[in-house]
């Protein structure tokens, strides 16, 4: 198995895990973290697949994309946390299902 496939497979797995979390986890912080999983998954896939260059050295374009992607994801995550927090202060809810927050597992 080639090296690039290890990274890529890890990325795919991480992405699928993140998808499940974003879909099924109720707590909003879980959702934010799951979305970060998805992002990291894609970055791993980009880096992994960008490492197939036979001319020696990795492809710089996916690296640049990942750097841009990381900054964007950081921005999105910051916004996400701010909204989740404000939503919690305003309603006392930590999910979107209108169920009271579990309290203990915060």
């Amino acid at each position: 198995m080639s090296t690039y496939l290890v990274y890529t497979a890890g990325g795919v797995l991480l992405y699928a895990l993140g998808t499940y979390g974003l879909l099924a986890k109720r707590h909003l912080i879980h959702k934010v973290i799951s979305a970060n999983f998805m992002g990291s998954g894609v970055f791993l896939i980009l880096i992994g697949l960008g490492n197939r260059s036979p001319e020696g050295g990795p492809d710089p374009v996916p690296q640049a994309m990942v750097l841009t992607g990381i900054v964007v994801t950081v921005a999105l995550t910051a916004l996400g946390l701010a909204i989740v927090k404000r939503y919690y202060t305003a309603t006392g809810l930590d999910n979107l299902d209108d169920e009271p927050s579990a309290g203990g597992d915060r």
């Binding site: 998808t19 974003l22 879909l23 099924a24 979107l96 299902d97």
Partner: peptide, 11 residues
């Protein structure tokens, strides 16, 4: 439009 149902439907 409930989140889990809707997002699963999207996937």
């Amino acid at each position: 439009v409930a989140w889990t149902a809707a997002s699963t439907l999207f996937v």
